[in-house]
Structure formats: structure tokens, C-alpha cells
């Protein structure tokens, strides 16, 4: 039995706060990075990440072990993000932000190369579905089918969001190189 499975069992059976905190420490980095990419704001992403883990703690009994625990957490995180958008009608604001590149405070990350910083900036210009599918599939290694289950999105939409998003990213990231060559 892996340490993660043991912690999940302890958290479910005894409602053990310490075991759940260890699970939070294990997964918070990826969940928060995923939410930062979706929200394009650290503070908002942190709030939603806290809500995600609180919801996960409350609904821990409903985790049946089908699929990975991290996949289950990503599903809750995505639902919390959508719920937040519905509540605050921020979808319009976020949509408006697609065209305007936002300066992300990259110091929040563990360690980030210049290329990764450029990538994080470029990701702010994609829409939430493209960002979510690309992040889960390419950054965290989930299969298309798993992404489809996590995001509750048809398999075809997952694939089209990924390919459309990657074309956009390639365009955004190659623009500065072309400008350098021209000058």
C-alpha cells in the first residue's frame, strides 16, 4: 500500500485531520498551479484551492478509489472554479483578459526557468478550457480519457481544445523569436 493510500484510508476512517493535511501538502503545489493558470490570479487561486481542499475533506467518504486521488482533487478544483465563475460572473472578466497579457508573479513558483516563465505568461492568453486540458494532459500526464472524466467534457472537445491551445501557444511563444530575427 502506498503512503498516499494509507493517508487516504486514515483520513476517511478516522476523519484524521493530520493525515488529510499530509495529503494537502502532497498535492497543493499542482492544484494551486492548475488554478493559477485558470484564474490568472494568485489570490483568487489560493482561495479556490482552500475551498477545494475543504470540499475534498467533507466529501472524502465519496472517494471510492476509482481513478487517482489527484484526479479526484483536480475534478473538485475545476468544479470550484466553475462555481466561482457562476457566482461572481467572472467569466466575462476572464474572457476579456484573454487578449491582454497579464504579468504573473512568477516568484510564487518553486523554481522557474525563463522558458517556463514565458510559458506561464503565454498560458494566460488561452481560454479556461484550453488551459485546463493542456495543463492536465501535458503538464500532469493524464490521458485524454482521464481529462475528459476530470473536466466532465466530451473526449472530442478535450482533443480539439488541446490542439487549438497548442497552436495558440506556439504562435505566442515564437512571436518574440521572430521579432528578434527581424531586428
Amino acid at each position: 500500500m502506498t503512503s498516499e493510500s494509507a493517508l487516504i484510508l486514515r483520513a476517511v476512517a478516522r476523519h484524521d485531520n493530520d493525515a488529510f493535511s499530509a495529503l494537502v501538502r502532497m498535492h497543493q503545489g499542482k492544484i494551486r498551479a492548475f488554478l493559477v493558470r485558470l484564474c490568472k490570479s494568485y489570490d483568487l487561486a489560493d482561495d479556490i484551492a482552500q475551498e477545494t481542499f475543504l470540499t475534498a475533506f467533507r466529501k472524502l467518504q465519496s472517494f471510492k478509489g476509482k481513478g487517482s486521488f489527484s484526479g479526484w482533487l483536480f475534478r473538485i478544483a475545476h468544479n470550484c472554479f466553475l462555481q466561482h465563475i457562476r457566482k461572481t460572473k467572472r467569466r466575462i472578466e476572464i474572457t476579456e483578459q484573454f487578449g491582454t497579457q497579464q504579468e504573473l508573479q512568477t516568484k510564487q513558483y518553486d523554481s522557474l526557468s525563463t522558458e517556463q516563465m514565458d510559458l506561464e505568461q503565454a498560458l494566460t492568453q488561452l481560454n479556461p478550457d484550453e488551459t485546463a486540458t493542456i495543463t492536465l494532459c501535458h503538464s500532469y500526464g493524464y490521458s485524454h480519457q482521464e481529462v475528459s472524466d476530470i473536466l466532465d467534457m466530451p473526449l472530442g472537445s478535450v482533443k480539439s481544445n488541446i490542439s487549438r491551445g497548442k497552436v495558440k501557444l506556439k504562435k505566442i511563444l515564437t512571436k518574440p523569436i521572430e521579432l528578434e530575427k527581424a531586428s
Binding site: 497543493q28 503545489g29 499542482k30 494551486r32 498551479a33 493559477v36 510564487q108 513558483y109 518553486d110 522557474l112 526557468s113 522558458e115 517556463q116 510559458l119 506561464e120 493542456i134 501535458h138 503538464s139 500532469y140 500526464g141
Partner: peptide, 9 residues
């Protein structure tokens, strides 16, 4: 580049 997944401290 995408595979080098970003993790927040």
C-alpha cells in the same frame, strides 16, 4: 516545456 510542470511553493 509543458511537461516540466510548474509547482507552487
Amino acid at each position: 516545456l509543458l511537461a516540466q510542470s510548474a509547482v507552487i511553493a
